[in-house]
Nucleic acid binder design. Structure first.
Lengths: 225, 225
DNA sequence: GTCTATAGGCTGATAGAC
DNA sequence: GTCTATCAGCCTATAGAC
């Protein structure tokens, strides 16, 4: 039993790792400091010592995730390139963040659903960066005549939403495949990224496309209620 | 003080309403039965009496939401129409559910992030219906040559994800507008629906479009890490 | 920096009167 | 069906020894 002692640095990071995993799976309120400490193989009093309590630990984790993502996206913002390529780079950057921190989408989604209750004013701009970068790319594309004129805010919300949703729901999708036994075909992350890259570029293409006359709604008859 | 008494039916529905609101905002673990009872103006012992406890109340709510959504989508599934129109109807049906139950996206998203921990086997198929209906529409479109051949599962995940995200994050988006003061332009639900209808139809249009040579990735230089 | 022991508050549930 | 009173369990946090 050689591996018994810890250096202080690893205590901090062990706690952050365990917290990331558990907060992602069960949310802030569903996670106990006991569970975190146990999973980190650390005494639970260490949470207060190093982070000032459960809330402090969560804040440190959230800040780390948002800072990391904002940094990656900043590179895309600063990149001087055609809008199509910058959009592809945006998607790739998002994917890269998830590769490094697989729990990021769950935690960010939970946070955003809760109205950003734990998001400190100081890191709110980092959160916003996720959206403004893409917005700038869309505006560039429209300005340069490469994209049809679209509402950049609505576009941005949808793309970020679909990306977050995919990565945040992996566990549930696996459960469905397991329990229902539907073969869902490929749900590989790289395929998903490529697929939505193409969908976005197609959806943003300057009209008229080969495609559709904008269809009339109506829909199936269904009694109001 | 005439309005003091209740009939039993209204106690049940008052509890369901309060539970919907609070579970949506704060999640299952973040909501106390005290808070629910107080908001419903009902004695908290009634939760055990009518629903067998907190978990039972949540289950009843979740079941109600999923049943409602599955019913609406079933009409779209059964509708015999061209795939473009059926997809538009799918989106409209989703929007209609949200109009009737604005909390549905938050609750469903939370559930799905948690891996479906509270989703009973009995209602799991209802959950799945949300995805299979769209999948059928996409397959129809590809079969009929109206859509380009796409992976229906990936397409479906992205569309449902972007819809859920939009409606589940309204509170947070409003906070950002308020605190940062960015004028986000129109974030109206009907605009969003129309926008993504067009994006989907464009993204699914049979190639080649006017548009892009599929761009090469690369992206901005950024040190690995 | 780490651990043990314990305080003190809150939570979900229910027994029993009406 | 409804309400009051109550309880046992769990949770976060920390004082104090090492």
């Amino acid at each position: 039993m050689a591996v018994r002692q810890r250096d202080p640095k690893s205590t901090r990071s062990a706690l952050l790792d365990a917290a990331a995993d558990l907060f992602a799976k069960r949310g802030f309120d569903g996670t106990t400091i006991d569970a975190i400490a146990k999973q980190a193989r650390v005494n639970k009093a260490m949470i207060s010592y190093h982070f000032g309590g459960k809330r402090g630990l969560y804040g440190a984790l959230l800040s780390e995730i948002l800072t990391n993502m904002a940094a990656r996206l900043e590179a895309v913002r600063a990149w001087d390139a055609p809008p199509e390529q910058r959009m592809v780079a945006f998607i790739a950057a998002f994917r890269e963040v998830v590769r490094v921190q697989p729990v990021a989408p769950q935690i960010m989604l939970r946070e955003v659903i809760s109205g950003g209750r734990h998001v400190d004013r100081k890191i709110l701009p980092n959160f916003l960066a996720i959206f403004t970068v893409l917005q700038g790319i869309l505006e560039q594309g429209t300005r340069e005549g490469k994209f049809r004129p679209v509402n950049p805010v609505l576009t941005q919300i949808g793309l970020v939403g679909s990306l977050m949703f995919f990565f945040a729901t992996e566990t549930f999708r696996k459960r469905i495949v397991r329990e229902i036994g539907v073969d869902a075909g490929s749900m590989d992350a790289e395929d998903y990224i490529r697929h939505w890259r193409d969908m976005m570029l197609g959806g943003l293409a300057v009209r008229p496309v080969a495609g559709f006359p904008v269809p009339v709604d109506s829909g199936p008859s269904q009694g109001d209620e």
